[in-house]
Amino acid sequence: MTATSPTPTAAGLTRPVGPAAGVVPVALALIRRSLLGTVRIPATFIPMIVMPLFFVIAFGGAFSSVTLLPGFPTDNILNWVAPFSVLQGASFAGFGSAFGAGRDLENGFFDRLLLAPSPRLALILGALGYSALRAFVPTVIVVSAVLLTGATVPGGVLAIAVLLLAAMGVAVSAGLWGLGVVYRTRTQRSGGLIQVGIFTAMFLSVGLVPLSQMEGTWLYWAARVNPITAVLGMARSGFVGDVTVDAVLPGVGALAAMIGLLGWFAWRGFRRLEG
């Protein structure tokens, strides 16, 4: 896209105006930059890989006997905790983007982005695209680990695809939440606040046991209204049985609602940066 509109000057000459930039190339360039940053400090991969694996091992090992509870949907604990661990890892990926934006805001790199005539949307999409891309890492790692233990995924390839979709949605949602906070605080020190939000959303849900097992407790009511519950239901559906429309639709709806709301929150924060 090149648009040059001539502008009259004092001398009556025209001063050329530089081109405007498109959304897609700018977003892609920003994703590329984030990727470079990750690849060049390989140590950043370690928590991305270790954390979801640790979740699988810790939850799967410590609470393996929850499957013995009457009415539990599966008898293999790994099938139960793997999707939860993947979503945990995905939320961490979203946090990573927000943390990166906080660093850019603190050291002034963000000014470089704001100074460019690129569409503002592209700056947010770049950060989110990277989050979504990173959601592949926990999905691949955890699913491979689970398959290596000899467990089977009843829903097959479709189950893994649905899990990946859920993971990307969670990464984008967490990223939007984090960006919204970071755009307002302009510092990566707000990382603690972002994590508390993500942690609360992920845990006040059906991570350990299904809703039916927590009836009568406060958590039941919290988990029922938490959109993550529907997303977890979607992510798990192909791991405890066949992928069903009844499980996937509410999850997709919850993700859309979260992305819409948090997207508004992030966008409002972004507008405040320019003022």
């Binding site: 896209m1 001063r15 530089g18 405007a20 930039a21 930059r33 790199f109 963000f110 100074l115 460019a116």
Partner: peptide, 29 residues
């Protein structure tokens, strides 16, 4: 229409000069 070099010259230390130039070019379409 403007070029700006700000005070702290915030430059991503992990990128090379060429990569930054290419990013800057993309940002400017």
């Amino acid at each position: 229409s403007i070029g700006v070099a700000l005070q702290d010259a915030a430059i991503d230390p992990l990128m090379t000069g060429n990569e930054l130039l290419r990013l800057q070019a993309t940002l400017h379409g």
